[in-house]
Simulated assay, not measured.
Amino acid sequence: MIKQISITFIFLLILSSCSSTISTSKKEYILQHSKELKSDWTINSKEWVLKNDTLTGNGSLSPWGVLVSKKELPKNYEIDFKVNMTNASLFEIMLNLDKGKYIRTYLYQIDQNIVIGDGMYNKKDDSYGKRGGKTLFRKPMELQNNKWYAVKIKVLNNQLFFSVDNKTSLECSLEKSNLNQKGKLGFITNGEVKITGLTIKTF
């Protein structure tokens, strides 16, 4: 019996490590250590560092600071974290990045909105029109530098739910809005931003 349990555990461990998604149905993914940043994400060490459980990104108007996962998000998932735009006007969560297209979910200080949009990303080109994209949905929210915000993103049955501090939220259908239904996770900033408590759960 013990031998059978051990074999099952090893099989699940192998299955988890070989999974093509950043999270599996057997566990939740929590970014806590620098070795996970190196193994699970495509990074530029000048743009993103992980220290004391805090992920810090640095970008500019050109180039943006970009961080992209090496594995895809699950089909149904929930992402939770806290973010502080210490010196940035734009912080963007790239969802379902695939073949240069992704879902834009972001906090935008200039317009004082949270936004869902249809984005494009060309990792070799920082020029205008090669990154970012059109706005589909927006909602006003007061956004400040040096303030922590709790972000929750949920995709379930192709329905996207995006909320900040559990009080301002947007929702849309991926299918009806012609948005990607699979792909990787990424982050974009045009200044300094700090992220802590990044957790990805699978449904």
Rank of each mutant, 00 (worst) to 15 (best):
I5R: 12
S19E: 08
K184W: 07
Q32Y: 05
Y29T: 00
P63R: 08
L67I: 00
S62L: 07
K167I: 13
K27F: 06
N166F: 03
G117F: 03
S169D: 14
D125F: 00
V66F: 05
S17I: 10
L198E: 04
L185H: 04
I43T: 09
I188V: 06
K35G: 12
N180Q: 13
K139G: 08
I153W: 08
K26G: 09
I10Y: 09
K154F: 10
L50P: 08
E36F: 04
I5W: 08
K71S: 04
S127C: 05
I10M: 11
I188N: 11
K194D: 06
T42N: 00
M120C: 12
K176R: 09
Q4H: 07
K167V: 15
I43E: 02
E72I: 05
S19F: 02
C18Q: 03
E171Y: 09
N87H: 12
T21W: 02
I195S: 10
V151E: 00
S16K: 08
V151Y: 01
V164T: 02
E36N: 13
L12G: 05
S6V: 05
T54Q: 00
Y108I: 06
K139H: 14
N122P: 00
M141G: 08
F161Y: 11
K139Y: 14
N84K: 12
G183V: 07
T54H: 03
S17P: 12
V66Q: 04
G186N: 03
G59A: 14
S16R: 06
Y102Q: 10
P140K: 13
N157R: 10
K123V: 04
Y77G: 03
I30M: 13
N190A: 13
M85H: 13
D126L: 07
I7L: 12
G197S: 11
I116T: 09
Y102N: 10
L170S: 04
T54C: 08
I195D: 04
T135V: 15
V49H: 13
K201F: 03
D80M: 11
F91M: 11
T21F: 03
